[in-house]
Design a protein around this nucleic acid. Structure first.
Length: 204
DNA sequence: AGCACGATGCTCT
DNA sequence: GAGCATCGTGCTT
């Protein structure tokens, strides 16, 4: 049984199985975070497709946002956030985890969308074995399942040659979207701590 | 079902 | 040297 069978097909137009274009990412991280719900995250590994539908995202918006890494300004680590949209920002945290973001908005405005969870679709066996059967709902869980790490930092998500991109997936109706405060920002001051910039999709 | 905690190393102060 | 956009285990309820 294929996981796709539980999800309705995308009725929208536009080419599927093609990386989303640069202008998709060139908008506000808030818009991109919402629009990425239901999109298909694709990873090519050993010539095979691993993919999953994005079910949870968070937006991080500029130097003013004290939850965003760019709050410290332009550094070696955050330089990618100031570059063109549509690139991967992959960073290491808690001494062992890699987290995947998509850079958004115009050049010189540091913003990104964190991809926090996927509903697996292709290459499930491969991803499950990477996870020892422990699931994909968590930003470090999906990177482990898809073998995404620091080597992927800066990749252009609009190019197939990156072996990492995002495609049009299924459309997620507004009724199935919920928002809330971003996770893990306990020591971030208000109002940033409580901004409802986390987006969750209930699929099928 | 929920909380506390340790693992483990990079980044910025 | 402190803090971290987390996870899995183990213990309590």
């Amino acid at each position: 049984m294929h996981a796709d069978s539980t999800l309705r097909a995308d009725p929208g137009r536009g080419r599927k199985r093609e990386p989303l274009p640069r202008d998709f990412y060139g908008r506000s991280a808030l818009v991109v975070a919402r629009e990425l719900l239901g999109a298909r995250l694709v990873r090519i590994r050993d010539g095979a497709r691993l993919s999953g539908f994005i079910t949870e995202t968070e937006a991080y918006l500029g130097e003013e946002d004290l939850g965003c890494h760019a709050k410290a300004g332009r550094t070696v680590r955050t330089a990618i956030l100031y570059g063109p949209p549509g690139h991967a920002y992959v960073y290491f945290t808690y001494g062992m985890h890699w987290l995947l973001n998509a850079v958004t908005g115009p050049i010189d405005f540091p913003a990104a969308v964190l991809i926090r969870a996927i509903h697996p679709a292709e290459g499930i066996e491969h991803m499950t074995s990477r996870r020892a059967g422990r699931g994909f709902d968590g930003p470090a869980k999906l990177t482990q399942a898809m073998e995404i790490d620091g080597a992927d930092n800066g990749l252009d998500l609009t190019r197939r040659s990156s072996c990492l991109w995002i495609e049009k997936g299924i459309s997620v109706h507004g009724r199935r979207v919920t928002t809330g405060p971003r996770v893990g920002l306990d020591r971030v001051p208000e109002p940033w701590k409580s901004k409802p910039w986390r987006f969750l999709a209930k699929l099928a």
